[in-house]
Design a protein around this nucleic acid. Structure first.
Lengths: 145, 145
DNA sequence: CCAATAAAGGACTTTTTTATCCTTTATTAA
DNA sequence: TTAATAAAGGATAAAAAAGTCCTTTATTGG
């Protein structure tokens, strides 16, 4: 596994896709999303359900329904998505898995891990969900193949 | 989960512990290691077996036996341990889980992730297994509580 | 109103990770 | 040479993550 869980990877890809479509004024259904971000449809449905429930994305039922992001949603940092899926272990936890590791009682990798974590936090906070819309629309960036 | 799997966290803590003991000229048994790095004994045994099999740590059976590291082993980068346990997805894989993501066909987070990955790689390569021996012996760094 | 559509939700199954237990093999020292 | 010790190895079990399927609920347009 990479840095994020598979669930989280799907979530990130999905919100980028939804963002792009929202920018173009369209709502999108899971089927379309799943196809375009290369994820299992039923599983992705669960993930989006969760994000929808906590208000990170919007959804509407019925014909013409689907998932979408309003202006506020598009400007949220990716960190919110990751936190909703992974919890904030990745932002705060010890790199070596020690629960009592802290500044006062550091594990050997404490300092180095802080740098890594800060880099991750920076990335996830500076990246808004809608940040790459134009590049995605232009096809300069990819979400599947 | 943090950045590494639990298995990998145990492995890292264990080799640091073994390193420390080896520095002091002692071999250590799983029971002692498990107690001191707060990990399940039987599970840790499997992990050390694996590391031993690929030659990253040494072991000997019977009374006075145990796990240990020779001078070469103490100087190996922690990256070797992580690679043995996790594979090298963490060093090479796309942060968003896309198999065809590359410089030519990048995912949205490609650039940012490269920085994160490079930081991790730097940390794991600059850290030798024996790097913290003295601090561990002095009790300035911790491996359990 | 009703048929079609799409998300929400519940109940599972599968796979992977984490973990245990018990037997075998090697080594040591008395 | 044998009793004790410690790692190696095999077989399983438990828990968590990933994934599926089917039913329910809400919404729309005809």
């Amino acid at each position: 596994m990479g840095i994020f869980s598979k669930t989280c990877e799907y979530a990130i890809r999905a919100v980028f896709y939804i963002a792009q479509k929202s920018q173009e004024g369209q709502k999108t259904g899971i089927k379309e999303i799943a196809e375009n971000i290369d994820s299992p449809e039923a599983f992705l449905a669960k993930i989006l359900q969760k994000l929808s429930k906590v208000g990170l994305i919007s959804s509407s039922k019925g014909p013409t329904g689907g998932f979408y992001l309003d202006t506020v949603g598009l400007q949220r940092p990716l960190a919110d998505i990751v936190a909703a899926i992974e919890g904030d272990d990745i932002f705060t936890g010890c790199g070596m898995g020690l629960s009592y590791c802290s500044e006062e009682n550091p594990c050997p990798l404490h300092k180095d891990f802080k740098k890594v974590r800060n880099q991750i936090i920076k990335m996830l906070h500076e990246t808004t969900i809608g940040k790459f819309n134009q590049e995605l629309i232009n096809g300069q960036l990819t979400l599947n193949k």
